Amino acid sequence: MPVVTGAHELLDTEVFVDLSGPLGVNLHLKCEGLNFAGSVKIRSATWMVAAAERSGLIGPDTTLVESSSGNLGVAMAVVAAARNLRFHCVTDAKCNPSTIRLMRALGATVEVVEEPAAHGGLLAARKARVRALCARSSGYLWLNQYENEASWLAHYHHTGPGLAKEFGALDVLFVGVGTGGTLTGCARYFRDHHPGVRLIAVDAEGSVNFGGRPGPRRIPGLGAAEPMPLVDAGLVDEVLRVPEADTVRMCRRLAARGLLLGGSSGTVVSAARTWLAAEDPDRALTAVAIAPDLGERYLDTVYDDDWVTRHFGAAAAAPLTRELRA
């Protein structure tokens, strides 16, 4: 029986969901939200804090500070609370309200940036605020999830090997891309140890991570308003971009089966289903998609009929339960 002494020690419950029935494709979903942070970001947060401590960067007067659209902020709040550290999260107006409340419940200071920067939007504004805090006081430490190698090393040493252990004959892996830590760590692991695995990056439409055309994005998580330093297009075989309306529809489709997943997860699953339906009609491939988060934090957005109708139209908010039971 696994026993942990702190919330930050629970990184993986090794749960996979077979989606062949609900979606009609041969796809296993690795659920990363079954930890105290509710997302895959617990790994990056834990590794970044541990690396900083080993380097002697964290002292008794240190306040960790980070820019986050949601999941990493919650993960840092969990790790900071478990390690008795102070944490200041700079987020923005697109962050789910429940996520902000959750971080504050964990003891974090949360600052919400309302105005986007002239270049780089809300992300650039958040990063500018973090830099200002660090310039104001030497007690602030920015671990910088956007450039910190510990962010992807966590997945190189943990997520990638775990997937290879469970799926020795893995053919295709779908990984969502935000800051790039999960993708880079997994891609580098499989390139080094199992180069035959096809790596497919999933990005949100409107993101510029792979040189896409910038556009509005309402769902926090995947995608970026400026290229992420950790993202290396040379590590992947293919990039799939998903419109947010498809993300919403997939989230609601899975919720009708009892799987309340987050926006990032809905994006990855939507891309995986479309690709597999076209490329693997005989269901001969072994495919896994990494689901970064669960859905409770999206109750005010993705799962709210009024919000969905306002942004994506009534069709996206239509219930799918009857269709799934047919």
Rank of each mutant, 00 (worst) to 15 (best):
G107E: 11
S69R: 00
A287Y: 08
K30M: 01
M76H: 04
A287P: 06
L299A: 02
A75G: 02
P60R: 01
D203I: 08
R322M: 10
L259S: 02
K127A: 09
G221V: 14
V40H: 13
A37C: 06
G313W: 03
D232L: 04
V113H: 02
G176C: 12
F16Y: 15
M1G: 11
M228V: 04
L299R: 02
H155E: 13
A52D: 04
V110G: 02
D305V: 13
R54E: 15
S44F: 04
R273K: 10
T274Y: 11
K30Q: 07
S20A: 14
K94I: 03
G221E: 13
A278H: 08
A317D: 07
K41H: 06
N84P: 01
R217K: 03
M228K: 01
T301R: 03
A245F: 03
A245T: 09
L320E: 03
L222G: 02
P281F: 15
R273G: 08
S68H: 05
P214T: 05
P161A: 12
A278W: 06
L85M: 09
L23C: 14
W47M: 12
N144V: 07
L235Q: 09
L72C: 09
V242E: 08
V78Q: 03
E226A: 08
G266N: 06
R101G: 15
M1P: 07
L123H: 04
G33C: 08
P161I: 07
E115T: 15
P216S: 08
R129P: 01
R283L: 12
V112A: 07
E53Y: 12
R217E: 09
A255K: 05
L254Q: 01
A284G: 15
P227V: 06
V268I: 09
R218D: 04
R310F: 08
